[in-house]
Design a protein around this nucleic acid. Structure first.
Lengths: 219, 219
DNA sequence: CGGAGGGTCAATCAAAAGGTTGACCCCGGG
DNA sequence: CCCGGGGTCAACCTTTTGATTGACCCTCCG
Protein backbone atom coordinates (compact mmCIF):
# COMPACT_ATOMS: atom_id res chain seq x y z
CA UNK A 1 0.00 0.00 0.00
CA UNK A 2 1.34 3.42 -0.93
CA UNK A 3 1.73 6.33 1.42
CA UNK A 4 -1.10 8.58 2.47
CA UNK A 5 -0.37 11.81 0.62
CA UNK A 6 -1.00 14.93 2.67
CA UNK A 7 -1.39 18.57 1.67
CA UNK A 8 -0.38 20.92 4.50
CA UNK A 9 -2.19 24.24 4.71
CA UNK A 10 -1.00 26.68 7.36
CA UNK A 11 0.18 30.25 7.18
CA UNK A 12 2.99 29.76 9.68
CA UNK A 13 6.23 28.40 8.25
CA UNK A 14 7.11 27.13 11.69
CA UNK A 15 3.97 25.05 11.98
CA UNK A 16 4.33 23.67 8.48
CA UNK A 17 7.88 22.65 9.25
CA UNK A 18 6.69 21.00 12.43
CA UNK A 19 3.96 19.02 10.76
CA UNK A 20 6.26 18.04 7.95
CA UNK A 21 8.92 16.82 10.36
CA UNK A 22 6.37 15.04 12.51
CA UNK A 23 4.40 13.35 9.76
CA UNK A 24 7.28 12.28 7.55
CA UNK A 25 8.67 10.38 10.49
CA UNK A 26 5.65 8.14 10.47
CA UNK A 27 5.54 5.18 8.11
CA UNK A 28 2.87 5.44 5.49
CA UNK A 29 2.58 9.23 5.36
CA UNK A 30 4.22 11.60 2.93
CA UNK A 31 3.81 15.29 2.26
CA UNK A 32 2.47 15.96 -1.21
CA UNK A 33 2.70 19.73 -0.97
CA UNK A 34 2.32 22.72 1.32
CA UNK A 35 0.36 25.94 1.09
CA UNK A 36 0.30 29.11 3.15
CA UNK A 37 -3.37 29.97 2.61
CA UNK A 38 -6.61 28.72 1.08
CA UNK A 39 -5.99 29.99 -2.42
CA UNK A 40 -2.55 28.45 -2.54
CA UNK A 41 -4.06 25.20 -1.34
CA UNK A 42 -6.53 25.15 -4.22
CA UNK A 43 -3.73 25.92 -6.62
CA UNK A 44 -1.67 23.08 -5.23
CA UNK A 45 -4.57 20.67 -5.54
CA UNK A 46 -5.17 21.50 -9.18
CA UNK A 47 -1.47 21.46 -9.93
CA UNK A 48 -1.09 18.03 -8.37
CA UNK A 49 -4.21 16.79 -10.11
CA UNK A 50 -2.76 17.80 -13.48
CA UNK A 51 0.34 15.80 -12.66
CA UNK A 52 -1.84 12.85 -11.87
CA UNK A 53 -0.76 12.96 -8.25
CA UNK A 54 -3.69 12.70 -5.92
CA UNK A 55 -3.94 14.11 -2.40
CA UNK A 56 -5.41 11.78 0.18
CA UNK A 57 -5.86 14.24 3.05
CA UNK A 58 -5.77 18.01 3.39
CA UNK A 59 -4.47 19.11 6.77
CA UNK A 60 -5.91 22.58 7.24
CA UNK A 61 -5.43 25.34 9.78
CA UNK A 62 -8.52 27.45 10.42
CA UNK A 63 -6.88 30.70 11.43
CA UNK A 64 -4.92 32.22 8.63
CA UNK A 65 -3.96 35.84 8.73
CA UNK A 66 -4.21 36.86 5.12
CA UNK A 67 -6.00 35.47 2.11
CA UNK A 68 -8.75 32.86 2.09
CA UNK A 69 -9.30 31.43 5.55
CA UNK A 70 -9.61 27.79 6.50
CA UNK A 71 -13.39 27.59 6.44
CA UNK A 72 -13.68 29.15 3.00
CA UNK A 73 -10.87 26.96 1.74
CA UNK A 74 -12.53 23.84 3.13
CA UNK A 75 -15.81 24.73 1.48
CA UNK A 76 -14.04 25.41 -1.81
CA UNK A 77 -12.20 22.11 -1.68
CA UNK A 78 -15.39 20.20 -1.01
CA UNK A 79 -16.83 21.61 -4.22
CA UNK A 80 -14.10 20.07 -6.35
CA UNK A 81 -14.78 17.06 -8.54
CA UNK A 82 -13.18 14.42 -6.33
CA UNK A 83 -12.54 16.28 -3.12
CA UNK A 84 -10.02 14.85 -0.68
CA UNK A 85 -11.09 14.74 2.96
CA UNK A 86 -10.19 17.89 4.88
CA UNK A 87 -8.88 17.42 8.39
CA UNK A 88 -8.93 20.61 10.45
CA UNK A 89 -5.92 21.03 12.69
CA UNK A 90 -6.19 24.23 14.66
CA UNK A 91 -5.45 25.97 17.92
CA UNK A 92 -8.94 26.76 19.15
CA UNK A 93 -11.92 24.60 19.87
CA UNK A 94 -14.67 27.19 19.94
CA UNK A 95 -18.26 26.48 18.98
CA UNK A 96 -18.22 28.67 15.94
CA UNK A 97 -14.93 27.27 14.72
CA UNK A 98 -16.08 23.71 15.06
CA UNK A 99 -19.53 24.30 13.67
CA UNK A 100 -18.42 26.33 10.70
CA UNK A 101 -15.72 23.79 9.91
CA UNK A 102 -18.19 20.93 10.03
CA UNK A 103 -20.69 22.92 8.00
CA UNK A 104 -18.01 23.62 5.43
CA UNK A 105 -17.54 19.90 5.05
CA UNK A 106 -14.52 19.08 7.17
CA UNK A 107 -13.93 15.39 7.85
CA UNK A 108 -12.35 15.96 11.19
CA UNK A 109 -11.37 18.50 13.81
CA UNK A 110 -8.17 18.14 15.79
CA UNK A 111 -6.29 20.48 18.06
CA UNK A 112 -2.66 21.40 17.53
CA UNK A 113 -1.75 20.49 21.06
CA UNK A 114 -2.73 16.90 20.45
CA UNK A 115 0.09 14.38 20.85
CA UNK A 116 1.76 13.31 17.59
CA UNK A 117 0.33 9.81 17.80
CA UNK A 118 -3.21 11.18 17.83
CA UNK A 119 -2.49 13.37 14.86
CA UNK A 120 -1.04 10.41 13.01
CA UNK A 121 -4.14 8.31 13.71
CA UNK A 122 -6.39 11.17 12.67
CA UNK A 123 -4.61 11.49 9.32
CA UNK A 124 -5.03 7.80 8.58
CA UNK A 125 -8.64 7.82 9.70
CA UNK A 126 -9.43 10.83 7.52
CA UNK A 127 -7.68 9.21 4.57
CA UNK A 128 -9.85 6.15 5.09
CA UNK A 129 -12.94 8.32 4.88
CA UNK A 130 -13.67 8.23 8.59
CA UNK A 131 -14.64 11.18 10.74
CA UNK A 132 -12.30 12.13 13.56
CA UNK A 133 -13.24 14.66 16.20
CA UNK A 134 -11.45 16.06 19.20
CA UNK A 135 -13.40 15.31 22.39
CA UNK A 136 -14.80 18.83 22.72
CA UNK A 137 -15.82 18.95 19.10
CA UNK A 138 -17.67 15.68 19.46
CA UNK A 139 -19.37 16.87 22.62
CA UNK A 140 -20.46 20.09 21.01
CA UNK A 141 -22.03 18.38 18.02
CA UNK A 142 -23.89 15.99 20.28
CA UNK A 143 -25.22 18.88 22.28
CA UNK A 144 -26.29 20.71 19.13
CA UNK A 145 -28.37 17.77 18.07
CA UNK A 146 -30.06 17.25 21.39
CA UNK A 147 -30.55 20.95 22.11
CA UNK A 148 -30.74 23.07 18.95
CA UNK A 149 -32.67 25.96 20.50
CA UNK A 150 -29.66 27.90 21.66
CA UNK A 151 -28.63 29.73 18.53
CA UNK A 152 -28.89 33.48 18.18
CA UNK A 153 -31.42 35.07 15.86
CA UNK A 154 -30.22 37.49 13.17
CA UNK A 155 -31.68 40.35 15.15
CA UNK A 156 -29.78 39.30 18.25
CA UNK A 157 -26.55 39.06 16.29
CA UNK A 158 -27.19 42.54 14.92
CA UNK A 159 -27.61 43.98 18.38
CA UNK A 160 -24.55 42.07 19.53
CA UNK A 161 -22.52 43.74 16.81
CA UNK A 162 -23.69 47.17 17.87
CA UNK A 163 -23.04 46.25 21.48
CA UNK A 164 -19.45 45.41 20.63
CA UNK A 165 -18.86 48.85 19.16
CA UNK A 166 -19.38 50.31 22.61
CA UNK A 167 -22.86 51.77 22.21
CA UNK A 168 -25.19 52.16 25.19
CA UNK A 169 -28.63 50.59 25.19
CA UNK A 170 -30.15 53.94 24.33
CA UNK A 171 -27.74 54.48 21.46
CA UNK A 172 -28.43 51.02 20.11
CA UNK A 173 -32.15 51.70 20.34
CA UNK A 174 -31.80 54.88 18.28
CA UNK A 175 -29.55 53.14 15.78
CA UNK A 176 -32.08 50.44 14.93
CA UNK A 177 -35.24 52.48 15.61
CA UNK A 178 -36.59 50.47 18.49
CA UNK A 179 -37.13 51.36 22.14
CA UNK A 180 -34.58 50.95 24.86
CA UNK A 181 -36.90 48.42 26.50
CA UNK A 182 -36.70 46.22 23.45
CA UNK A 183 -32.95 46.44 23.41
CA UNK A 184 -32.94 45.23 26.99
CA UNK A 185 -35.22 42.35 26.13
CA UNK A 186 -32.93 41.26 23.33
CA UNK A 187 -29.89 41.54 25.55
CA UNK A 188 -31.47 39.33 28.19
CA UNK A 189 -32.11 36.70 25.54
CA UNK A 190 -28.56 37.03 24.25
CA UNK A 191 -27.07 36.67 27.71
CA UNK A 192 -29.12 33.58 28.30
CA UNK A 193 -28.07 31.95 25.07
CA UNK A 194 -24.41 32.79 25.53
CA UNK A 195 -24.41 31.83 29.18
CA UNK A 196 -23.18 35.18 30.45
CA UNK A 197 -24.64 37.96 32.57
CA UNK A 198 -23.29 41.24 31.31
CA UNK A 199 -22.49 42.98 28.07
CA UNK A 200 -18.73 42.76 28.14
CA UNK A 201 -18.86 39.03 28.81
CA UNK A 202 -21.32 38.72 25.94
CA UNK A 203 -18.84 40.45 23.64
CA UNK A 204 -16.05 38.18 24.81
CA UNK A 205 -18.15 35.05 24.38
CA UNK A 206 -19.50 36.09 21.00
CA UNK A 207 -16.06 37.03 19.77
CA UNK A 208 -14.56 33.81 20.96
CA UNK A 209 -17.24 31.81 19.19
CA UNK A 210 -16.80 33.99 16.14
CA UNK A 211 -20.41 35.05 16.23
CA UNK A 212 -19.19 38.57 15.75
CA UNK A 213 -15.98 40.12 14.55
CA UNK A 214 -13.63 41.44 17.21
CA UNK A 215 -14.67 44.96 18.20
CA UNK A 216 -13.05 47.66 16.14
CA UNK A 217 -11.97 45.34 13.35
CA UNK A 218 -12.78 46.66 9.92
CA UNK A 219 -15.11 44.78 7.67
CA UNK B 1 32.96 28.49 17.72
CA UNK B 2 30.43 26.08 19.14
CA UNK B 3 26.75 26.05 18.34
CA UNK B 4 24.24 28.38 19.91
CA UNK B 5 22.33 26.11 22.25
CA UNK B 6 18.59 26.79 22.31
CA UNK B 7 15.88 25.77 24.76
CA UNK B 8 12.48 25.58 23.07
CA UNK B 9 9.45 26.40 25.21
CA UNK B 10 6.06 25.93 23.57
CA UNK B 11 3.05 23.91 24.59
CA UNK B 12 2.34 22.68 21.08
CA UNK B 13 4.31 19.62 20.01
CA UNK B 14 3.77 20.64 16.42
CA UNK B 15 5.35 24.04 16.90
CA UNK B 16 8.26 22.57 18.80
CA UNK B 17 8.85 20.10 16.02
CA UNK B 18 8.71 22.92 13.50
CA UNK B 19 11.20 25.07 15.34
CA UNK B 20 13.45 22.12 15.90
CA UNK B 21 13.38 21.18 12.22
CA UNK B 22 13.86 24.77 11.15
CA UNK B 23 16.64 25.70 13.53
CA UNK B 24 18.68 22.52 13.30
CA UNK B 25 18.93 23.08 9.58
CA UNK B 26 20.87 26.24 10.22
CA UNK B 27 24.57 26.04 10.86
CA UNK B 28 25.58 27.11 14.30
CA UNK B 29 22.33 26.35 16.11
CA UNK B 30 21.45 23.26 18.08
CA UNK B 31 18.53 22.41 20.31
CA UNK B 32 19.61 21.84 23.89
CA UNK B 33 16.19 20.80 25.13
CA UNK B 34 12.46 21.39 24.84
CA UNK B 35 9.72 22.17 27.33
CA UNK B 36 5.96 22.33 27.10
CA UNK B 37 5.45 25.03 29.73
CA UNK B 38 7.22 27.44 32.03
CA UNK B 39 7.80 25.03 34.88
CA UNK B 40 9.23 22.40 32.58
CA UNK B 41 11.50 25.07 31.10
CA UNK B 42 12.91 25.91 34.52
CA UNK B 43 13.42 22.24 35.22
CA UNK B 44 15.27 21.80 31.96
CA UNK B 45 17.48 24.79 32.68
CA UNK B 46 18.49 23.47 36.08
CA UNK B 47 18.94 19.96 34.73
CA UNK B 48 21.21 21.20 31.96
CA UNK B 49 23.09 23.42 34.38
CA UNK B 50 23.84 20.40 36.58
CA UNK B 51 25.23 18.61 33.55
CA UNK B 52 27.43 21.60 32.87
CA UNK B 53 25.60 22.23 29.63
CA UNK B 54 24.65 25.86 29.25
CA UNK B 55 21.75 27.28 27.30
CA UNK B 56 22.50 30.28 25.14
CA UNK B 57 18.96 31.31 24.23
CA UNK B 58 15.50 30.44 25.48
CA UNK B 59 12.91 30.57 22.70
CA UNK B 60 9.63 31.14 24.50
CA UNK B 61 6.02 31.18 23.46
CA UNK B 62 3.84 33.60 25.41
CA UNK B 63 0.52 31.80 25.12
CA UNK B 64 0.54 28.50 26.86
CA UNK B 65 -2.65 26.79 27.79
CA UNK B 66 -1.82 25.12 31.05
CA UNK B 67 0.82 25.67 33.70
CA UNK B 68 3.07 28.69 34.05
CA UNK B 69 2.66 31.05 31.12
CA UNK B 70 5.39 32.69 29.08
CA UNK B 71 5.57 35.95 30.98
CA UNK B 72 5.83 34.26 34.35
CA UNK B 73 8.39 31.84 32.96
CA UNK B 74 10.45 34.65 31.49
CA UNK B 75 10.44 36.51 34.78
CA UNK B 76 11.42 33.35 36.64
CA UNK B 77 14.28 32.66 34.26
CA UNK B 78 15.61 36.19 34.61
CA UNK B 79 15.88 35.63 38.32
CA UNK B 80 18.29 32.73 37.93
CA UNK B 81 21.98 33.07 38.69
CA UNK B 82 23.24 33.36 35.12
CA UNK B 83 20.07 33.77 33.14
CA UNK B 84 20.18 33.06 29.42
CA UNK B 85 18.52 35.64 27.16
CA UNK B 86 14.84 34.92 26.55
CA UNK B 87 13.58 35.49 23.04
CA UNK B 88 9.80 35.65 22.82
CA UNK B 89 8.37 33.97 19.74
CA UNK B 90 4.63 34.35 19.70
CA UNK B 91 1.54 34.77 17.55
CA UNK B 92 0.29 38.18 18.66
CA UNK B 93 1.86 41.60 18.68
CA UNK B 94 -0.44 43.53 20.98
CA UNK B 95 0.77 46.23 23.33
CA UNK B 96 -0.16 44.16 26.33
CA UNK B 97 1.85 41.16 25.21
CA UNK B 98 4.86 43.19 24.20
CA UNK B 99 4.94 45.32 27.32
CA UNK B 100 4.54 42.48 29.75
CA UNK B 101 7.19 40.46 27.94
CA UNK B 102 9.66 43.33 27.99
CA UNK B 103 8.87 44.03 31.62
CA UNK B 104 9.49 40.41 32.44
CA UNK B 105 12.95 40.80 31.01
CA UNK B 106 12.69 39.36 27.51
CA UNK B 107 15.63 40.08 25.21
CA UNK B 108 13.53 40.07 22.11
CA UNK B 109 10.07 39.78 20.64
CA UNK B 110 9.46 38.00 17.37
CA UNK B 111 6.32 36.80 15.64
CA UNK B 112 5.77 33.22 14.60
CA UNK B 113 4.89 34.18 11.09
CA UNK B 114 8.33 35.67 10.57
CA UNK B 115 10.34 34.05 7.80
CA UNK B 116 12.87 31.44 8.98
CA UNK B 117 15.81 33.64 8.09
CA UNK B 118 14.57 36.36 10.45
CA UNK B 119 14.10 33.87 13.23
CA UNK B 120 17.59 32.56 12.66
CA UNK B 121 19.07 36.04 12.87
CA UNK B 122 17.06 36.79 15.97
CA UNK B 123 18.38 33.70 17.73
CA UNK B 124 21.98 34.67 16.98
CA UNK B 125 21.38 38.25 17.99
CA UNK B 126 19.80 37.21 21.27
CA UNK B 127 22.63 34.77 21.95
CA UNK B 128 25.07 37.64 21.41
CA UNK B 129 23.27 39.65 24.04
CA UNK B 130 21.57 41.96 21.58
CA UNK B 131 17.95 43.02 21.67
CA UNK B 132 15.80 42.01 18.73
CA UNK B 133 12.32 43.38 18.26
CA UNK B 134 9.63 42.87 15.67
CA UNK B 135 8.83 46.18 13.94
CA UNK B 136 5.65 46.75 15.86
CA UNK B 137 7.29 45.98 19.17
CA UNK B 138 10.09 48.41 18.40
CA UNK B 139 7.64 51.10 17.38
CA UNK B 140 5.63 50.66 20.56
CA UNK B 141 8.65 51.01 22.80
CA UNK B 142 9.87 54.06 20.91
CA UNK B 143 6.49 55.67 21.33
CA UNK B 144 6.59 54.94 25.03
CA UNK B 145 9.80 56.89 25.33
CA UNK B 146 8.92 59.86 23.14
CA UNK B 147 5.33 60.25 24.28
CA UNK B 148 4.66 58.72 27.65
CA UNK B 149 1.89 61.13 28.65
CA UNK B 150 -1.01 59.85 26.63
CA UNK B 151 -0.29 56.18 26.75
CA UNK B 152 -1.72 53.69 29.15
CA UNK B 153 0.31 52.52 32.09
CA UNK B 154 1.05 48.82 32.41
CA UNK B 155 -1.42 48.63 35.23
CA UNK B 156 -4.11 50.20 33.12
CA UNK B 157 -3.40 47.79 30.29
CA UNK B 158 -3.64 44.94 32.73
CA UNK B 159 -7.07 46.05 33.92
CA UNK B 160 -8.13 46.59 30.34
CA UNK B 161 -7.30 42.99 29.58
CA UNK B 162 -9.38 41.76 32.48
CA UNK B 163 -12.15 44.13 31.44
CA UNK B 164 -12.21 42.57 27.99
CA UNK B 165 -12.73 39.12 29.42
CA UNK B 166 -16.10 40.28 30.69
CA UNK B 167 -15.32 40.59 34.38
CA UNK B 168 -17.22 43.04 36.58
CA UNK B 169 -15.40 45.71 38.54
CA UNK B 170 -15.70 43.62 41.66
CA UNK B 171 -14.34 40.54 39.92
CA UNK B 172 -11.42 42.52 38.54
CA UNK B 173 -10.73 43.86 42.01
CA UNK B 174 -10.55 40.37 43.46
CA UNK B 175 -8.41 39.17 40.61
CA UNK B 176 -5.66 41.73 41.17
CA UNK B 177 -6.12 42.12 44.93
CA UNK B 178 -7.19 45.75 44.99
CA UNK B 179 -10.46 47.40 45.98
CA UNK B 180 -13.35 48.03 43.67
CA UNK B 181 -12.82 51.75 44.22
CA UNK B 182 -9.36 51.49 42.79
CA UNK B 183 -10.63 49.60 39.80
CA UNK B 184 -13.07 52.43 39.15
CA UNK B 185 -10.30 54.98 39.43
CA UNK B 186 -8.23 53.12 36.88
CA UNK B 187 -11.18 52.78 34.55
CA UNK B 188 -11.85 56.50 34.68
CA UNK B 189 -8.23 57.12 33.69
CA UNK B 190 -8.48 54.54 30.92
CA UNK B 191 -11.67 56.06 29.54
CA UNK B 192 -10.04 59.45 29.53
CA UNK B 193 -6.95 58.28 27.70
CA UNK B 194 -8.91 56.29 25.15
CA UNK B 195 -11.52 59.01 24.69
CA UNK B 196 -14.50 56.85 25.55
CA UNK B 197 -17.05 56.79 28.34
CA UNK B 198 -17.95 53.20 29.04
CA UNK B 199 -16.30 49.83 29.30
CA UNK B 200 -17.51 48.30 26.07
CA UNK B 201 -16.29 51.30 24.10
CA UNK B 202 -12.98 51.01 25.90
CA UNK B 203 -12.67 47.40 24.79
CA UNK B 204 -13.48 48.35 21.21
CA UNK B 205 -11.00 51.23 21.20
CA UNK B 206 -8.25 49.22 22.84
CA UNK B 207 -8.77 46.32 20.47
CA UNK B 208 -8.77 48.56 17.43
CA UNK B 209 -5.53 50.20 18.53
CA UNK B 210 -4.12 46.79 19.26
CA UNK B 211 -3.52 47.66 22.87
CA UNK B 212 -5.12 44.40 23.82
CA UNK B 213 -5.90 41.20 22.00
CA UNK B 214 -9.49 40.65 20.93
CA UNK B 215 -11.59 39.36 23.83
CA UNK B 216 -11.74 35.63 24.20
CA UNK B 217 -8.59 34.92 22.25
CA UNK B 218 -6.38 32.44 24.04
CA UNK B 219 -3.52 33.81 26.06
C1' DC C 1 -57.20 27.40 12.35
C1' DG C 2 -54.02 27.72 16.13
C1' DG C 3 -49.68 27.44 18.18
C1' DA C 4 -44.70 28.62 18.31
C1' DG C 5 -41.19 31.69 17.77
C1' DG C 6 -39.58 36.19 16.84
C1' DG C 7 -39.98 41.09 17.54
C1' DT C 8 -41.92 44.86 19.92
C1' DC C 9 -42.93 47.65 24.26
C1' DA C 10 -43.82 48.95 29.39
C1' DA C 11 -43.32 49.07 34.44
C1' DT C 12 -40.67 48.12 38.25
C1' DC C 13 -36.94 46.96 41.22
C1' DA C 14 -32.13 45.73 42.22
C1' DA C 15 -27.44 45.92 40.98
C1' DA C 16 -23.64 47.63 38.68
C1' DA C 17 -21.16 51.14 36.53
C1' DG C 18 -19.74 55.88 35.98
C1' DG C 19 -18.26 60.79 37.80
C1' DT C 20 -16.37 63.61 41.29
C1' DT C 21 -13.68 64.91 45.03
C1' DG C 22 -10.26 64.26 48.20
C1' DA C 23 -6.77 61.68 50.41
C1' DC C 24 -2.49 58.77 51.33
C1' DC C 25 1.72 56.22 49.97
C1' DC C 26 5.90 55.33 47.24
C1' DC C 27 9.44 56.36 44.13
C1' DG C 28 12.52 58.79 41.01
C1' DG C 29 14.35 63.10 39.13
C1' DG C 30 15.11 68.13 39.09
C1' DC D 1 14.43 68.08 49.38
C1' DC D 2 10.28 68.61 47.19
C1' DC D 3 7.41 67.71 43.37
C1' DG D 4 4.88 64.76 40.09
C1' DG D 5 3.23 60.48 38.47
C1' DG D 6 1.51 56.15 39.49
C1' DG D 7 -1.08 53.36 42.51
C1' DT D 8 -4.19 52.87 46.25
C1' DC D 9 -8.74 53.77 48.71
C1' DA D 10 -13.25 56.11 50.40
C1' DA D 11 -17.68 58.60 50.22
C1' DC D 12 -21.19 60.32 47.61
C1' DC D 13 -24.32 60.70 43.95
C1' DT D 14 -26.24 59.93 39.15
C1' DT D 15 -26.92 57.07 35.31
C1' DT D 16 -27.00 52.80 33.15
C1' DT D 17 -27.68 48.17 33.05
C1' DG D 18 -29.83 43.77 34.31
C1' DA D 19 -33.94 40.84 35.89
C1' DT D 20 -38.64 40.01 35.93
C1' DT D 21 -43.19 40.05 34.42
C1' DG D 22 -46.69 40.67 31.28
C1' DA D 23 -48.51 42.18 27.03
C1' DC D 24 -49.38 42.78 21.83
C1' DC D 25 -48.34 41.96 17.04
C1' DC D 26 -46.56 39.52 13.31
C1' DT D 27 -45.42 35.21 10.26
C1' DC D 28 -44.59 30.59 9.37
C1' DC D 29 -46.17 25.99 9.57
C1' DG D 30 -48.51 21.78 11.07
Amino acid sequence: MTDVRVLLVDDHPVVRAGLRAMLTEFDGISIAAEAADGKAALNELSRLAMLGEGVDVVLMDLQMGAGMDGVAATAAIRKLAAPPPVLILTTYDTDADILSAVEAGASGYMLKDAPPEQIRQAVFAAAAGETVLAPRAAALLMKRITNPGTSLTPREVQLLELLATGLSNRAIAKQVFISEATVKTHLVHIYGKLGVDNRTAAIAAATRRRIIRPPGQAG
